[in-house]
Simulated scan of single mutants.
Amino acid sequence: MSVLPLVFTSGWASGVNAYAVVLLLGVFGATGLSDDVPPALQRTDVLIAAGVLFLCEAVADKIPYVDSAWDAVHTVVRPVAGAVVGALLAGQSGSLSDLAAGAIGGTTALASHAVKAGTRMAVNTSPEPVSNIALSTAEDIGVAGIVAFAVFHPVAAAVAAAVLLALGLAVLVLLWTRIRRFLRRRAQRREEKRPAGRAREPSAPTAGPPR
């Protein structure tokens, strides 16, 4: 069976939470629930590192503005993770070239990362943290569910991931106004934090002796 659906789904999920994807796939492989997981993802050191980083993301992803900074750092990490996982899956099955799988996984991860990061920018225009916590929790549950579903039903999971990606891109377009407002506010905060050199006001001329 072609590994393409699993590569696509893991790419989409990596763009949302790459560490959760590595951790879940590794656990499924290590416990024998799936034979499609490459040994590299089942290594103990990989699972420990993925687990620790997943916990870090679980916290950072729920704090307003910190989540956007975290997303900015992971603009490279998530697509690379999607590409690497895709290439490893392809190498395990042999039904798809590593290069093609890496390209598919990386591109899909980049697209879903753009949706996640853009949506967070829009959410951060609201000062309350409840929206961030609710959205982050929904993303964690969604990634866990879609990855677990993909292990047993890869084609159906790929269709679901494609629908979620399309909906996310559509929402991102609608939220672009709020995102631009957020970027302007962040730029203003940076300007305010810079030490402003105030020009000295000219001193009042001293009055001469009375004539």
Rank of each mutant, 00 (worst) to 15 (best):
Leu169Phe: 06
Ala109Trp: 00
Ala87Trp: 00
Gly118Gln: 02
Leu167Lys: 11
Ser97Ile: 04
Ile179Ala: 12
Arg189Ala: 11
Gly168Pro: 03
Gln92Asp: 07
Pro127Asp: 11
Arg190Gln: 12
Ala101His: 02
Ala87Pro: 03
Pro129Arg: 05
Ser131Gln: 14
Ala158Gly: 12
Arg189Phe: 13
Met121Gln: 13
Ala101Arg: 07
Ile104Lys: 01
Arg185Trp: 09
Val151Asp: 04
Val155Asp: 02
Gly102Trp: 05
Ala157Tyr: 01
Leu135Gln: 11
Phe152Arg: 11
Ala148Glu: 07
Val85Asn: 00
Arg184Lys: 14
Ala111Cys: 06
Ala150Met: 06
Asp98Ser: 07
Gly86Glu: 01
Ala138Trp: 10
Ala101Lys: 01
Ala144Ser: 15
Gln92Gly: 04
Gly86Gln: 02
Arg180Ala: 14
Gly105Val: 02
Asn124His: 06
Ser126Ile: 07
His113Thr: 11
Thr137Asp: 04
Gly105Ser: 01
Val171Met: 09
Ala158Leu: 10
Gly86Ser: 08
Ala109His: 09
Asn124Trp: 03
Ala138Thr: 15
Ser136Trp: 05
Ile146Asn: 06
Gly105Leu: 01
Gly102Tyr: 02
Ser97Asn: 00
Ala100Val: 13
Gln92His: 05
Arg120Asp: 13
Ser126Leu: 11
Ala187Cys: 08
Val159Ala: 15
Arg186Glu: 14
Gly105Pro: 00
Ala101Glu: 05
Pro129Val: 07
Leu183Asn: 10
Thr119Val: 03
Leu169Arg: 09
Ala117Asn: 09
Ala157Asn: 05
Asp140Tyr: 06
Leu172His: 10
Gln188Ala: 15
Val123Thr: 11
Ala150Pro: 10
Ile179Gly: 07
His153Tyr: 13
Gly102Leu: 01
Arg178Phe: 12
Val123Glu: 06
Arg189Leu: 14
Arg190Ser: 13
Ala117Tyr: 11
Ala122Trp: 08
Ser126Lys: 00
Ile179Tyr: 12
Ala134Gln: 10
Leu88Met: 09
Ile104Glu: 00
Ala160Pro: 09
Leu88Phe: 02
Leu175Tyr: 03
Thr107Asn: 05
His153Ser: 15
Leu110Thr: 02
Ser93Val: 01
Leu165Asn: 08
Gly91Ser: 06
Val171Gln: 10
Glu139Trp: 12
Ala150Phe: 08
Val151Pro: 06
Ala109Cys: 03
Val159Phe: 09
Leu174Pro: 09
Ala150Gln: 08
Arg120Lys: 14
Glu192His: 14
Arg186Leu: 14
Ala161Phe: 09
Trp176His: 15
Ala187Ile: 01
His153Glu: 15
Ala160His: 00
Ser112Glu: 03
Val123Ala: 05
Asp140Cys: 10
Val84Thr: 00
Ala138Glu: 05
Gly118Ser: 04
Pro127Phe: 06
Ala158Pro: 12
Gly118Val: 10
Val123Gly: 11
Glu192Met: 13
Ala156Arg: 04
Ile141Met: 10
Val143Asn: 08
